[in-house]
Computed example of a mutant assay.
Amino acid sequence: MHDSDYANQLGDHLERILEGGADSLEAIVEGLNASGLEPPTKGRWTPDSLVAELQRLGA
C-alpha cells in the first residue's frame, strides 16, 4: 500500500473514531486497534506509535 493510500485510510478511521466521541489519545488508540488498521510497525497501536505516525505523515 502506498503512503497516500495508507494516510487516507488512517484519516478515514480517525474521522470515524473522533465522530464516535473519542476524546483522548487513549480512546483514539483503542478505536484504531478495534478498527483492524495496523500501524506500519504491525501489532497494535500505542499512543507513541500514533504520534510517531502522525508526525511521519506530516499531520
Rank of each mutant, 00 (worst) to 15 (best):
E30C: 00
N33E: 05
G58A: 05
D5T: 14
T46N: 03
A27K: 07
A7K: 09
L50T: 01
G36F: 08
L25A: 08
D12Q: 15
D48V: 05
S49E: 03
L14A: 03
I17C: 02
A7G: 03
D5V: 12
E26S: 11
L32R: 03
A52E: 07
G43R: 07
D12S: 14
G20R: 09
L57F: 04
R16K: 14
M1S: 13
G11P: 00
R16W: 06
P40Y: 12
P47N: 07
G11H: 05
Q9R: 15
D23I: 01
R56F: 10
G43Y: 08
D5H: 14
D48T: 12
G20A: 10
S35A: 12
A22P: 04
T46S: 08
S24I: 01
R56L: 05
A34E: 15
S35W: 03
Q9I: 10
D23P: 00
G20H: 10
P47G: 05
N8E: 15
P47K: 07
M1A: 14
N33A: 07
P39T: 06
N8P: 00
L10R: 02
I28F: 01
V51Y: 08
M1H: 13
T46K: 03
A59M: 09
G43Q: 08
T41I: 12
E26L: 09
I28D: 04
A22Y: 01
D3V: 11
D5C: 09
G20N: 10
D3R: 14
K42V: 08
L32H: 04
N33C: 08
Q55M: 13
K42Y: 13
L18G: 06
R16V: 10
D12G: 13
D5L: 14
E26I: 05
E30V: 07
G31R: 04
G20C: 10
P47L: 04
N8H: 15
T46W: 03
D12R: 15
D5G: 10
S35E: 05
M1E: 11
M1K: 13
A27F: 00
L25K: 11
H2D: 13
L32F: 05
D23W: 00
G58L: 06
I28M: 06
L50M: 04
L57I: 02
Q55V: 12
A7S: 12
Y6I: 02
G58T: 02
L50P: 00
E15R: 14
D3A: 12
L18C: 14
L18M: 15
K42P: 02
T41W: 11
G21P: 03
H13R: 15
G31M: 02
A7E: 09
D5Q: 15
V51W: 00
L54F: 08
